[in-house]
Write a protein that binds this DNA or RNA. Structure first.
Length: 251
DNA sequence: GTTGAGCGTT
């Protein structure tokens, strides 16, 4: 029913964006819309998804028409349990209203309602960050790194080298082998794909020469006959006189 | 079928 984000940003003239984090990967905009709509007028709900897989990244953006409603939603929905996962609702940075939020209007409310959440932010390694950046790089920086982009094996080579640079771990080895296997498999497929085409003529050629010898066999068949004849002739020759002799002897 | 830090689509 709700096709938010599918047609692009609807009307972001006076909308306040909220960032919903820690949501399940299966949560969709339709699931968040009713929940957030209960606390205010939601004009748009958007969940960034992966370009390739299409799965949600685990966070969503909810746009409210009014900041007070958005704040209320944050106060009510932040820390709420959704699908067995506690979601975190906070104001989004991106957006035309982000400036206003930073100004202090929302911040004021937020300040007064300090809940002392220790989960605000903590230094943690980025894993998917590289993933996301890489994905975006491939699209926008295509022309900048045309050369590198075109070189697909470059990445594998780099990782390969990196793996080697690091310590040799069994797990790493497994990953490395997996990638190599994939490459090899794809190569195998390529070769196989092309092999029938190229080997096709070979097969025909193989058959051709086979046929030729086939005919040769025919000739051979004839030759054995002649050979037989000669063989027969030979014994016959020896035998020929034999009977004659025997006859002669006998007689 | 999987995972769990973080900020978005025309």
């Amino acid at each position: 029913m709700s096709h938010f984000g599918r047609s692009g940003p609807p009307d972001i003239r006076d909308t306040y964006s909220l960032l919903v984090l820690n949501i399940t990967f299966r949560t969709t905009a339709d699931d968040l819309y009713p929940l957030f709509d209960k606390y205010g007028k939601v004009v748009d709900v958007f969940i960034p998804r992966d370009r390739r897989t299409g799965d949600s990244r685990g966070f969503a953006f909810v746009r409210y028409k009014y900041a007070d409603e958005a704040q209320k939603a944050i106060d009510k929905l932040d820390g709420r349990m959704l699908d067995g996962r506690e979601i975190m609702v906070q104001f989004a940075k991106y957006g035309p209203n982000a400036e206003k939020i930073r100004k202090g209007k929302v911040m004021e409310s937020s300040s007064s309602k300090t809940r002392g959440r220790s989960r605000s932010r903590s230094p943690r390694p980025r894993h998917r960050d590289d993933y996301r950046d890489r994905d975006y790089r491939r699209r926008s920086r295509s022309r900048s790194r045309e050369r590198y982009d075109r070189d697909r094996p470059h990445r594998s080579e780099r990782e390969h080298h990196r793996s080697r640079s690091r310590s040799a771990s069994p797990d790493r080895n497994k990953d490395r082998r997996r990638e190599r296997d994939d490459e090899r498999h794809s190569a195998s497929r390529s070769e196989r794909s092309m092999s029938p085409t190229r080997h096709s003529p070979d097969t025909r050629r193989s058959i051709s020469p086979r046929r030729t010898p086939s005919r040769g066999r025919s000739d051979d068949e004839h030759s054995p006959q002649r050979e037989n004849g000669s063989l027969d002739d030979k014994p016959v020759d020896s035998r020929s006189p034999s009977p004659a002799k025997s006859d002669a002897d006998v007689s």
